[in-house]
Simulated scan of single mutants.
Amino acid sequence: MKILMILFLLGVQEAAAVIHSLKFLSTASSGVPNLPEFVGVGMVDDVQIGHYDRDTQKAEPTQDWAVKLKEDHPQEWEGRTAFALVHQQELKAGFEGVKQLFNHTEGVHSYQEISGCDWDEETDELNGFIQVGYDGEDFISFDLKTETWIASNQQAVIIKTKLDSDKAGNAEAKTFLTQIFPEMLKVLLNYGRSSLMRTVLPSVSLLQRSSSSPITCHSTGFYPHRAELVWKKDGEELHEGVHKGEILPNHDGTFQMSVDLDLSAVGSENWDRYSCVFQLSGVNKDITTKLDKAEIRSNEGGSLSVIIAVVVAVVVLAAVAVIGFIIYKKRTDKRSPPSVENPEVQEQMVPTA
């Protein structure tokens, strides 16, 4: 998986599974116009819940229910901002160290961290992760099963060697990923359940740029993002001549996606055998749209009549546990989090001369 600096495309989970996720995302950068040197976000089920950046130096909630959580625990929230300030310096130190490894003294560069956990509410299965990327490419990641680090390129090997030798830090990382993160996630789900667990069906349209272009089945306004959109012929899913797009976020917190059908293999007399089917996790009834020429909205012969609003998810929103601090504040009084955010680990990530 590539860790991108700006665009974080939301993946589709199994429609039948009830899987929740907690992600802390952070980006340190240099030479990027109009972007703070450090930006981070906390996300639950791929919904942004809090934001911090170097310019504001404040951890702020971005959901109504997160605002309520902040109001209920104001002192802890203030502590979260203080913690974010420290994390900002730690990430910057790691960033400078990795730039030295690549001999990058100037230009545009970025350093990203994604940490968190997935939790299957039905089976109680957990999966924790820490991934670090540099300039949009994987750099190093934590293997939870072996409590060791995986280097993605030659430059990361020196970092892996140092991190692997820190047995205590890696054991603590395992505890953090398998116990503390899940505790955070469950508390956040309790506060945001009415919003996070809602289901919203989309509007579905058939679009075509010109008579020779593929037919696009576009669905927008659905929630959650655990959804499928497919083309079927006589009730059987098609794969040949079909191009499926990514699930993308809308500005209102809902999602959109599209799937194209190449018409070169579709005879006009067979159109009634084709349909676009939308499936949403938690909803038993599918939305089926028959392939009908009369229902296709086309741009041919004039200016654009349909504008597909794509709101890009900026991943520079925070690896800091913006809201989860409520749970682990007391624990961090004893020791900082055991990932690459840990000052002891960060120090190892800065190569010496």
Score class of each variant (00 low, 15 high):
Ala171Pro: 04
His109Trp: 06
Val316His: 10
Arg209Ile: 01
Lys174Pro: 02
Lys174Met: 03
Phe142Ile: 03
Ser281Phe: 00
Asp120Phe: 06
Val320Glu: 13
Gly302Tyr: 11
Gln75Asn: 00
Ser305Met: 15
Leu9Gln: 10
Leu35Asp: 00
Asp272Lys: 13
Asp333Ser: 04
Asn270Met: 08
Phe8Met: 11
Gly302Thr: 09
Val44Trp: 03
Pro337Ala: 03
Ala82Thr: 10
Leu189Asp: 03
Gln348Ser: 01
His239Ile: 09
Ile287Asn: 09
Phe24Trp: 07
Ser268Gly: 00
Ala16Ser: 14
Leu22Pro: 01
Ser219His: 01
Leu163Gly: 01
Ala171Thr: 07
Asp118His: 04
Lys330Leu: 08
Gly169Leu: 02
Thr146Arg: 14
Glu341Cys: 05
Phe278Asp: 04
Trp271Cys: 03
Gly133Arg: 05
Lys70Phe: 15
Val340Ser: 08
Asn284Lys: 11
Thr254Leu: 02
Thr178Met: 15
Ala173Lys: 09
Tyr328Asp: 15
His225Phe: 01
Arg273Gly: 04
Ile326Tyr: 09
Trp149Pro: 02
Ser26Met: 06
Asn127Arg: 06
Arg193Tyr: 14
Val350Cys: 03
Leu163Asn: 03
Leu189Pro: 06
Ile247Gly: 05
Ala82Glu: 13
Ala156Lys: 05
Ser268Phe: 04
Trp271Gln: 12
Thr199Leu: 01
Val283Trp: 02
Glu90Gly: 01
Ile180Gly: 03
Asp124Ser: 13
Met5Ile: 05
Leu196His: 12
Gln279Ala: 15
Asp45Ala: 00
Ala321Cys: 06
Leu185Gly: 06
Ser264Gly: 13
Leu10Asp: 04
Ser303Leu: 14
Arg209Lys: 14
Lys68Pro: 01
Asp286Gly: 05
Glu14Cys: 03
Gln208Asn: 00
Lys285Val: 10
Val315Pro: 07
Thr148Cys: 11
Asn190Ser: 07
Met257Lys: 00
Asp252Val: 11
Ser211Met: 06
Cys217Thr: 02
Leu291Lys: 07
Gly50His: 12
Val200Gln: 11
Lys145Asp: 15
Leu85Phe: 06
Gly97Lys: 01
Lys244Gly: 03
Val242Tyr: 12
Asp124His: 10
Trp271Ser: 07
Ala313Glu: 15
Pro182Glu: 12
Ser210Phe: 08
Ser303Tyr: 14
Glu341Ala: 08
Glu347Arg: 11
Ile159Cys: 00
Glu125Asp: 06
Ile150Glu: 12
Arg273Ser: 14
Asp72Gln: 05
Glu137Ala: 08
Ala66His: 04
Val283Asn: 08
Leu188Val: 02
Gly42Gln: 15
Ala66Ser: 13
Gln256Thr: 13
Asn270Cys: 05
Gln57Asn: 04
Leu248Met: 15
Phe83Asp: 10
Ile287Arg: 09
Pro74Trp: 10
His239Ala: 12
Glu14His: 11
Gln131Ser: 10
Ser339Phe: 15
Gln75Val: 11
Asp262His: 14
Ile180Trp: 13
Ala59Arg: 08
Leu35Ser: 07
His20Ile: 08
Leu35Phe: 05
Val242Ile: 14
Gly40Leu: 05
Phe139Ala: 03
Glu14Met: 03
Ala16Leu: 10
Gly235Glu: 13
Pro182Gln: 12
Cys276Glu: 11
Asp262Met: 09
Leu9Ile: 13
Glu246Met: 08
Glu147Asn: 13
Gln256Asn: 07
Val230Pro: 12
Lys186Pro: 05
Gln89Ser: 06
Gly253Arg: 02
Glu122Val: 04
Ala28Gln: 14
Val98Gln: 10
Thr289Phe: 14
